[in-house]
Amino acid sequence: MAIEPSLVAALSTLAATDHLLVALDFDGTLAPLVELAEDARPLPASAAALRALAGLPSTTTALISGRALDSLRVVADPPAETLLIGSHGAETWTGPDAAPLSLTDEQSELLSRAVRVVEHVVTAHEGTRIEFKPAGVVLHTRSADGAVAAAAVSSTRAELESVSGLSITDGKRVLEISVLDTDKGQGLALLRRVSGATAVLFAGDDVTDEDAQRTLGPDDVGIRIGAGETAASFTVEDPAAFSEVLQELLRRRASGASGDRR
Protein backbone atom coordinates (compact mmCIF):
# COMPACT_ATOMS: atom_id res chain seq x y z
CA MET A 1 0.00 0.00 0.00
CA ALA A 2 1.52 3.30 -1.12
CA ILE A 3 1.89 6.14 1.38
CA GLU A 4 0.35 9.38 0.14
CA PRO A 5 2.99 11.84 -1.15
CA SER A 6 2.12 14.58 1.36
CA LEU A 7 2.70 12.19 4.26
CA VAL A 8 5.99 11.02 2.75
CA ALA A 9 7.09 14.66 2.53
CA ALA A 10 6.07 15.28 6.15
CA LEU A 11 8.00 12.20 7.28
CA SER A 12 11.07 13.37 5.38
CA THR A 13 11.00 16.73 7.18
CA LEU A 14 10.29 15.09 10.53
CA ALA A 15 13.16 12.63 10.11
CA ALA A 16 15.63 15.52 9.82
CA THR A 17 14.75 17.11 13.19
CA ASP A 18 17.47 17.35 15.83
CA HIS A 19 15.73 15.16 18.41
CA LEU A 20 12.77 13.04 17.35
CA LEU A 21 10.08 11.70 19.68
CA VAL A 22 8.03 8.81 18.29
CA ALA A 23 5.07 8.49 20.65
CA LEU A 24 2.44 5.91 19.76
CA ASP A 25 -0.81 4.47 20.99
CA PHE A 26 -0.77 0.67 21.18
CA ASP A 27 -4.18 -0.96 20.64
CA GLY A 28 -5.50 -0.18 17.18
CA THR A 29 -2.23 1.49 16.21
CA LEU A 30 0.72 -0.85 16.68
CA ALA A 31 -1.59 -3.80 17.29
CA PRO A 32 -4.89 -4.69 15.61
CA LEU A 33 -7.91 -4.52 17.87
CA VAL A 34 -8.91 -7.91 19.29
CA GLU A 35 -11.81 -9.11 21.41
CA LEU A 36 -9.69 -9.94 24.47
CA ALA A 37 -7.23 -7.23 25.46
CA GLU A 38 -4.69 -9.75 26.74
CA ASP A 39 -4.44 -11.30 23.26
CA ALA A 40 -3.24 -8.10 21.55
CA ARG A 41 0.25 -8.08 20.08
CA PRO A 42 2.04 -5.55 17.85
CA LEU A 43 2.38 -6.34 14.17
CA PRO A 44 5.88 -7.82 13.70
CA ALA A 45 6.97 -5.14 11.22
CA SER A 46 5.79 -2.36 13.55
CA ALA A 47 7.54 -3.90 16.54
CA ALA A 48 10.76 -4.22 14.54
CA ALA A 49 10.55 -0.62 13.32
CA LEU A 50 9.93 0.69 16.84
CA ARG A 51 12.89 -1.28 18.16
CA ALA A 52 15.14 0.03 15.41
CA LEU A 53 14.01 3.63 15.95
CA ALA A 54 14.73 3.28 19.68
CA GLY A 55 18.32 2.44 18.84
CA LEU A 56 18.95 5.47 16.63
CA PRO A 57 20.86 8.57 17.81
CA SER A 58 18.77 11.44 19.20
CA THR A 59 15.56 9.45 18.83
CA THR A 60 13.20 8.70 21.73
CA THR A 61 10.41 6.16 21.45
CA ALA A 62 7.36 6.07 23.72
CA LEU A 63 4.03 4.33 24.08
CA ILE A 64 0.96 6.23 25.30
CA SER A 65 -1.85 3.86 26.14
CA GLY A 66 -5.08 3.57 28.04
CA ARG A 67 -3.74 0.29 29.40
CA ALA A 68 -2.22 0.01 32.83
CA LEU A 69 1.57 -0.05 32.60
CA ASP A 70 1.84 -3.69 33.68
CA SER A 71 -0.54 -4.76 30.93
CA LEU A 72 1.19 -2.56 28.36
CA ARG A 73 4.59 -4.06 29.14
CA VAL A 74 3.25 -7.61 28.73
CA VAL A 75 1.48 -7.16 25.39
CA ALA A 76 3.81 -4.61 23.78
CA ASP A 77 7.17 -5.96 24.99
CA PRO A 78 8.70 -2.55 24.25
CA PRO A 79 12.42 -1.85 23.92
CA ALA A 80 14.01 -1.22 27.32
CA GLU A 81 14.66 2.44 26.54
CA THR A 82 11.09 3.16 25.40
CA LEU A 83 9.24 5.57 27.69
CA LEU A 84 5.75 4.59 28.81
CA ILE A 85 2.54 6.43 29.62
CA GLY A 86 -0.29 4.21 30.90
CA SER A 87 -3.88 4.62 32.06
CA HIS A 88 -4.36 7.66 29.78
CA GLY A 89 -1.61 9.58 31.54
CA ALA A 90 -2.25 8.50 35.13
CA GLU A 91 0.80 6.21 35.12
CA THR A 92 4.19 7.22 33.79
CA TRP A 93 7.54 5.51 33.35
CA THR A 94 10.26 7.90 32.25
CA GLY A 95 13.21 5.90 33.55
CA PRO A 96 14.43 3.85 36.52
CA ASP A 97 14.01 6.80 38.90
CA ALA A 98 10.37 7.43 37.95
CA ALA A 99 8.11 7.62 41.02
CA PRO A 100 5.33 5.01 41.20
CA LEU A 101 1.69 6.09 41.14
CA SER A 102 0.28 6.76 44.62
CA LEU A 103 -3.35 7.52 45.51
CA THR A 104 -4.61 9.43 48.51
CA ASP A 105 -6.99 7.74 50.93
CA GLU A 106 -9.84 9.73 49.43
CA GLN A 107 -8.93 8.65 45.91
CA SER A 108 -8.64 5.02 47.00
CA GLU A 109 -12.13 5.13 48.50
CA LEU A 110 -13.48 6.79 45.38
CA LEU A 111 -11.92 4.08 43.24
CA SER A 112 -13.48 1.38 45.41
CA ARG A 113 -16.92 2.93 44.88
CA ALA A 114 -16.42 2.99 41.12
CA VAL A 115 -15.24 -0.62 41.11
CA ARG A 116 -18.34 -1.74 42.99
CA VAL A 117 -20.57 -0.02 40.44
CA VAL A 118 -18.83 -1.59 37.44
CA GLU A 119 -18.81 -5.02 39.10
CA HIS A 120 -22.57 -4.74 39.58
CA VAL A 121 -23.09 -3.67 35.95
CA VAL A 122 -20.94 -6.52 34.60
CA THR A 123 -22.91 -9.05 36.63
CA ALA A 124 -26.16 -7.80 35.09
CA HIS A 125 -24.99 -7.45 31.45
CA GLU A 126 -23.83 -10.54 29.60
CA GLY A 127 -20.65 -10.22 27.56
CA THR A 128 -19.27 -7.22 29.47
CA ARG A 129 -16.05 -7.37 31.44
CA ILE A 130 -14.24 -5.34 34.05
CA GLU A 131 -10.60 -4.27 34.00
CA PHE A 132 -8.84 -2.98 37.09
CA LYS A 133 -6.24 -0.22 36.90
CA PRO A 134 -4.12 1.45 39.59
CA ALA A 135 -6.13 4.67 39.32
CA GLY A 136 -9.28 3.48 37.63
CA VAL A 137 -11.61 0.79 36.40
CA VAL A 138 -12.80 -0.01 32.89
CA LEU A 139 -16.05 -1.42 31.56
CA HIS A 140 -15.36 -3.48 28.41
CA THR A 141 -18.30 -4.14 26.10
CA ARG A 142 -16.61 -5.49 22.94
CA SER A 143 -17.96 -9.02 23.53
CA ALA A 144 -21.50 -7.88 24.33
CA ASP A 145 -24.47 -7.48 22.01
CA GLY A 146 -24.85 -3.88 20.85
CA ALA A 147 -28.01 -3.23 22.85
CA VAL A 148 -26.54 -4.86 25.94
CA ALA A 149 -23.35 -2.81 25.58
CA ALA A 150 -25.31 0.43 25.33
CA ALA A 151 -27.41 -0.49 28.36
CA ALA A 152 -24.30 -1.35 30.38
CA VAL A 153 -22.67 2.00 29.60
CA SER A 154 -25.88 3.89 30.35
CA SER A 155 -26.34 2.05 33.64
CA THR A 156 -22.75 2.72 34.71
CA ARG A 157 -23.02 6.42 33.93
CA ALA A 158 -26.33 6.66 35.78
CA GLU A 159 -24.98 4.97 38.91
CA LEU A 160 -21.89 7.18 38.95
CA GLU A 161 -23.66 10.42 38.10
CA SER A 162 -23.86 11.54 41.71
CA VAL A 163 -20.23 10.60 42.50
CA SER A 164 -17.97 13.64 42.25
CA GLY A 165 -14.25 13.42 41.60
CA LEU A 166 -14.36 10.86 38.78
CA SER A 167 -13.17 11.27 35.21
CA ILE A 168 -15.37 9.21 32.85
CA THR A 169 -14.40 8.77 29.21
CA ASP A 170 -15.89 6.78 26.32
CA GLY A 171 -13.60 4.83 24.01
CA LYS A 172 -14.04 2.11 21.41
CA ARG A 173 -16.35 -0.29 23.25
CA VAL A 174 -14.94 0.76 26.62
CA LEU A 175 -15.94 3.15 29.36
CA GLU A 176 -12.97 4.42 31.35
CA ILE A 177 -13.46 5.62 34.92
CA SER A 178 -10.51 7.21 36.71
CA VAL A 179 -9.94 9.02 39.99
CA LEU A 180 -7.28 11.15 38.30
CA ASP A 181 -8.10 13.80 35.72
CA THR A 182 -5.41 13.02 33.17
CA ASP A 183 -5.33 12.51 29.42
CA LYS A 184 -2.95 11.58 26.64
CA GLY A 185 -2.34 15.22 25.82
CA GLN A 186 -0.83 15.76 29.24
CA GLY A 187 1.13 12.53 28.81
CA LEU A 188 2.56 13.64 25.49
CA ALA A 189 3.52 17.03 26.93
CA LEU A 190 5.46 15.24 29.68
CA LEU A 191 7.26 13.04 27.15
CA ARG A 192 8.17 16.07 25.07
CA ARG A 193 9.71 17.77 28.13
CA VAL A 194 11.55 14.67 29.34
CA SER A 195 12.99 13.81 25.93
CA GLY A 196 13.81 17.35 24.83
CA ALA A 197 12.21 16.57 21.48
CA THR A 198 12.32 19.15 18.72
CA ALA A 199 9.54 17.36 16.81
CA VAL A 200 7.05 14.57 17.48
CA LEU A 201 5.31 11.80 15.59
CA PHE A 202 2.10 10.82 17.37
CA ALA A 203 -0.35 8.20 16.12
CA GLY A 204 -3.55 6.80 17.59
CA ASP A 205 -6.91 5.37 16.62
CA ASP A 206 -9.40 6.37 19.33
CA VAL A 207 -11.19 9.45 20.64
CA THR A 208 -8.90 9.46 23.68
CA ASP A 209 -5.93 9.97 21.34
CA GLU A 210 -7.40 13.25 20.14
CA ASP A 211 -6.27 14.92 23.38
CA ALA A 212 -2.71 14.28 22.22
CA GLN A 213 -3.40 15.16 18.58
CA ARG A 214 -4.63 18.59 19.62
CA THR A 215 -1.32 19.38 21.36
CA LEU A 216 0.78 18.92 18.21
CA GLY A 217 2.56 21.88 16.66
CA PRO A 218 3.56 22.79 13.10
CA ASP A 219 6.81 20.80 13.27
CA ASP A 220 5.04 17.65 14.48
CA VAL A 221 3.17 14.94 12.56
CA GLY A 222 -0.12 13.52 13.80
CA ILE A 223 -1.65 10.40 12.27
CA ARG A 224 -5.11 8.97 12.85
CA ILE A 225 -5.49 5.22 12.36
CA GLY A 226 -8.87 4.44 10.81
CA ALA A 227 -11.95 6.54 10.17
CA GLY A 228 -13.26 9.20 12.52
CA GLU A 229 -13.16 12.90 13.19
CA THR A 230 -9.62 13.92 14.06
CA ALA A 231 -7.26 16.81 14.65
CA ALA A 232 -4.46 14.79 13.03
CA SER A 233 -3.04 16.03 9.74
CA PHE A 234 -3.01 12.54 8.23
CA THR A 235 -5.11 9.39 8.29
CA VAL A 236 -4.14 5.84 7.38
CA GLU A 237 -6.51 2.92 7.04
CA ASP A 238 -5.35 0.46 9.70
CA PRO A 239 -2.37 -0.76 11.77
CA ALA A 240 -0.92 -2.54 8.72
CA ALA A 241 -0.87 0.73 6.80
CA PHE A 242 0.68 2.51 9.77
CA SER A 243 3.38 -0.16 9.88
CA GLU A 244 4.48 1.02 6.44
CA VAL A 245 4.59 4.59 7.74
CA LEU A 246 6.84 3.57 10.62
CA GLN A 247 9.16 1.72 8.27
CA GLU A 248 9.35 4.76 5.98
CA LEU A 249 10.20 7.02 8.93
CA LEU A 250 12.86 4.54 10.06
CA ARG A 251 14.49 4.49 6.61
CA ARG A 252 14.64 8.25 6.45
CA ARG A 253 15.79 8.76 10.04
CA ALA A 254 18.43 6.03 9.79
CA SER A 255 19.82 7.38 6.53
CA GLY A 256 20.43 10.76 8.17
CA ALA A 257 21.69 9.45 11.51
CA SER A 258 25.10 10.70 12.61
CA GLY A 259 27.18 10.33 15.72
CA ASP A 260 26.71 13.94 16.84
CA ARG A 261 22.94 13.57 17.16
CA ARG A 262 22.92 11.61 20.46
Rank of each mutant, 00 (worst) to 15 (best):
V179Y: 14
R51D: 07
V8D: 10
A90D: 09
T215Q: 13
L110R: 13
T13P: 02
G127S: 15
S12V: 06
L180T: 09
A151N: 05
A68P: 08
D27C: 04
G228F: 05
T61K: 01
A147N: 12
A240K: 00
R192T: 05
G127C: 06
L72R: 07
E131Y: 15
W93M: 02
G66W: 09
G228I: 10
L14T: 13
L36W: 05
T82M: 04
L63R: 03
A203F: 11
Q107E: 15
L69G: 02
G187E: 09
R253L: 01
V137S: 14
A147R: 09
P78L: 04
P42G: 10
A23V: 09
A15G: 11
E131F: 07
A16H: 04
S102D: 13
E237D: 09
D27S: 06
L53Y: 01
V115L: 09
R67T: 12
V153R: 10
L246N: 02
E81H: 13
R193C: 05
S108Q: 12
H125A: 07
T29Q: 03
M1A: 02
E91P: 05
T169V: 14
A68W: 00
D27P: 07
L33S: 08
P96M: 11
T92Y: 03
E237W: 04
S46M: 13
T156I: 00
V74P: 04
V236A: 09
V194Q: 15
E109K: 15
